[in-house]
Amino acid sequence: MTKPRLATLAIIVAALAVIAFAGLSGALLNLMIFMMIIALAAQGWNILGGYAGLSSFGHAAFFGAGAYAMAVLQTRFGVNAWIALVIGIALGALVGAFIGFLSFRSGLKGSYFALITLAFAEVARILANSWNFTGGAAGILLKLQTGLPYLQFADRRYFLLITIGCVAIGLVVSWWLEHSRFGAYLVALRENEQAAQALGVDVFAVKMKAIAISGALTAAAGCLYAQNYLFIDANVAFGSWISIEALFAAIVGGSGTVLGPLIGAIVLLGLGELTKGLSGGIPGMDLLVFGIILVLSVAFSPNGLVMLMKSLGLRAPAKAKEA
């Protein structure tokens, strides 16, 4: 398996930035911002679900933690947006550590881990929905204040740049995983936990670190979501939709790969928009397509689009030689 080089990642990020300033229409800019937010959430999911093999069905817990930190800190305490962003990301890591501490200490994995993460996200959703501090069922509206200090821009291209920057950080984190001892531990854990433990890997510590990083990245996506749409409520921030989209994007793109989540998010949301357009606004058609793609990709390309492209790319020259 060839790993992408840092230079390749830099080119991809630069290309995204160029596209951002290529005169996209407002709707396309919004779509691209949304793609980047989902890509970032999926990158977070990928650290835990892809590299460490611990599939979470409840990454909404982290996304919501970030989104609510961003909204509550700014509206209730007048905290600066950038500081709120940092606190939100830290909170995501903390929530990750909390859920991780409880679940990994009990040795949960596989479907049990998927179920408990789902339950944690649901508890968070119910709490946020009924607690006045978090705005209850009405949600929280953020104030519109444009300018760099407020992390809101009259020109949406600048916000898109910020999201691209965050995705770039996510890419670097994944790249670092593939080149570090820690990343090797994660993969060892995924392939055979007992063997990894027998070889002296501190399984619990490695998992804790992974879920904290994973939570932090997905929380960053939540922060950006709140800041972009300026409104959140419990069903948006902690709803199962985001757990599902983060998982889908990572798996369809290629779980356990550097570029998988980004490619998955772009392909999925792109296709989603396309079906929405083609089906003339029949509700649910885009998600229907997502579901079909997920089943098809598990059935026919379990390693995701990244690997599919690679294997096609490897096969093509071989055929050329024969001819």
Binding site: G53, S55, F57, G110, S111, A114, I244, L247, I251, S279, I282, P283, G284, M285, L287, L288, F290, G291, I292, L294, V295, V298, A299, P302
Partner: peptide, 23 residues
């Protein structure tokens, strides 16, 4: 026959069914 595969396929199916009904 993989655990993770089943988890994901049934999740995918649930989303397909739910949204087909929605449509």
């Amino acid at each position: 026959g993989k655990d993770n595969g089943i988890l994901l396929v049934t999740l995918g199916l649930s989303i397909i069914i739910e949204n087909a009904l929605l449509a």
